[in-house]
Amino acid sequence: MRERTWSAGAYLAEFDSADALTRAAHAMEESGYSLLETYSPVPVAHGLRRSTSRLPIAVFIVGALGGLASYLIQWYANAYSYPLDIGGRPSHAVPAFLIPTFEGTVLSAALAAFFGFFIVARLPQPYHPVFDIDGFERATVDRYWLAIDAADDRSSPDLTPRELHRLDPLRVVRLEGGS
């Protein structure tokens, strides 16, 4: 599952605790909705099905490539392009080269993790339809939101809000799509 854009609109319900959100998410999933998303000020184990992140693999690969590049740069510079006899140590000085290689590995892996996150999370994105909701600011403070895509097969303009209301939310909001 990817980051939702709600291009078809969405139904949102506001809750005042992580617990209530978790219960609501489970209930909606059980009643057959699949395009769900939550918004919360702290990470919540809502049990929604999600794909496993492939970020670790990407980070491993980029890190390995970064390390390889760091080693090759040193080999090219000191052993191939401009060998200098310093302290009698060999031009191709494996123990010495390992240190910048380590740093290069970590640097590339860290950059991959950082930028990788912003890419998969599709940030920066100063504007998002949910920000149009009045009072959504509290989603980063103390309110918990459950959102259901209007494009979900099970969504319907009158049924879905009713189902959401049954979960005892503070309120239910309809977000228009099309923007």
């Binding site: 939702r4 919360s40 992140s53 970020l55 998969v120 999370a121 940030l123 920066p124 920000f131």
Partner: peptide, 14 residues
């Protein structure tokens, strides 16, 4: 950067 605390964002963030 437009953080909105969606479940997806939180998971990948962690």
């Amino acid at each position: 950067m437009g953080w909105r605390g969606s479940g997806f964002q939180w998971q990948r963030y962690r």
